[in-house]
Write a protein that binds this DNA or RNA. Structure first.
Lengths: 243, 243
DNA sequence: TTGTATTAGTGTCAAGATAACAATAACAGA
DNA sequence: TCTGTTATTGTTATCTTGACACTAATACAA
């Protein structure tokens, strides 16, 4: 944010790169983790799938840019949004120097209003394991980075709840953990851990189609995010930072 | 990094912000954690202390920018460098829209060559607990963010070793943890934990002024960073993400 | 109504990790 | 050899984890 304090400011002496915000949007669809991609219509990478994004406006913050982008693509406003990493290698966009601030967003299924263009074939939800490859630009890398972040935050935060609807069953919650960790978890150990963490509130309601009906829970938002550490040791994680 | 795929690219339609890279540089000085700041000579925030930084060049990557900045300020090349966060609120710099990609760097004491300007009073190392406040721009926030990151990475990485010289004693290592965590650790538990992690190599050498001489260790770089999890539970941490 | 298929929910124990705790060892210098 | 100073080591009680299998509640069909 600062120039060299030693020298007076002269903006014209510096070329300015373009700055974009890209948002990796995750959501659960039919119990599977999906990511939203858009198909490019122009050079470069015409016809390739890309992470949705756009240029920032001069009067909005980075996060506001990301929220605008998100709303344009999904029509959703109240979401979990977190800055991921900034990608800025020269040459990552053949047109000009582009610095891209990547965010990732987690959407609850209930809030997903269908956009008109969502029915067209240039905006699609892909299961994270079936993303077309390669993506446009360096978006494969950005997506991988987002998945890594998601996985590692699962360990010590309540981030997983952001993917669930208002009320949910314990097995649905467990399923998310398994989806993202890519690993089966023991039911009893999982239940115990969650209960001890004290982040769930019993709604008293039940839900069931076949079999024994499941208890419905709600996430206790009054629990401050940083107040407890929800460590997951059963599933051994690999910490691997990109860049 | 991508424009709206729907529309053809026309750079002139978008104003471009300035992009800078700021580097929060940490080092140990006389057993205390210090951070390097520079005093601003021009408007805005003339006379205020700031985190060193500068505009990026069009042909260098963000990390290259950060390394250049770092070398210009400290003359040091081989350091630990990690991207921290990108700050881009409109108005954070009164001159123009500035997006700042913040990095943090950890420097070993031995590698610190003195710069000529380090003797002048416009570049100074401050103990992290005695940083002048407020800093220029939103640099207080950036610094706080860097400290939080450092603290939380202590838990599950070998980052602390990056602040130590080639060889060091166990008590020196413990002291770093205590510095950053802001908390006393039990000597025996600490030794055990470190030994079990298997990241240290005994040099066979000793060092001592008064009292029993201390064994000198070396960090085993062959241990891949992600291979083990060096969890610290004794010191309860607060996870608190900025932004 | 009874049985069967299906999904939800629960408890124990052994092994491992952690935190709390104090005494001894190796040196320098008086 | 005594004293001051710093470095090093081990045990135990408690908590946390991971492994493991049976019972409960419903729907539906026989």
């Amino acid at each position: 944010m600062t120039d060299q304090p030693q020298q007076a400011y002269d903006a014209s002496r510096y070329d300015r790169p373009s700055v974009t915000v890209d948002v990796v949007i995750f959501a659960l669809k039919e119990r599977e983790l999906h990511v939203l991609l858009v198909k490019r219509r122009n050079w470069p990478f015409e016809g390739y799938w890309a992470i949705p994004g756009g240029f920032i406006k001069m009067d909005e913050s980075l996060e506001e840019s990301a929220r605008r982008e998100l709303e344009e693509e999904t029509g959703v406003r109240d979401v979990y949004l977190e800055q991921l990493y900034t990608f800025g290698d020269p040459g990552r966009d053949p047109r000009t120097r582009v610095i891209s601030v990547a965010y990732f967003a987690l959407i609850r299924p209930e809030t997903q209003t269908l956009r008109r263009s969502e029915e067209s074939d240039d905006v699609r939800w892909f299961p994270v394991r079936e993303v077309p490859s390669p993506l446009a630009f360096d978006h494969d890398r950005i997506l991988r980075y987002a998945e890594d972040r998601l996985r590692s935050k699962l360990e010590y935060s309540t981030i997983a709840f952001q993917l669930l609807p208002e009320v949910f069953t314990l097995l649905e919650l467990k399923h998310i953990y398994e989806q993202i960790l890519g690993e089966e978890l023991d039911k009893r150990n999982f239940y115990r851990k969650i209960r001890e963490a004290g982040v769930l509130e019993d709604t008293g309601r039940m839900r069931g189609n076949r079999g024994r009906p499941a208890r419905l829970y709600r996430f206790r938002r009054d629990r401050r995010e940083g107040d407890f550490v929800f460590r997951w040791r059963e599933a051994r994680l690999h910490h691997e930072d990109a860049e």
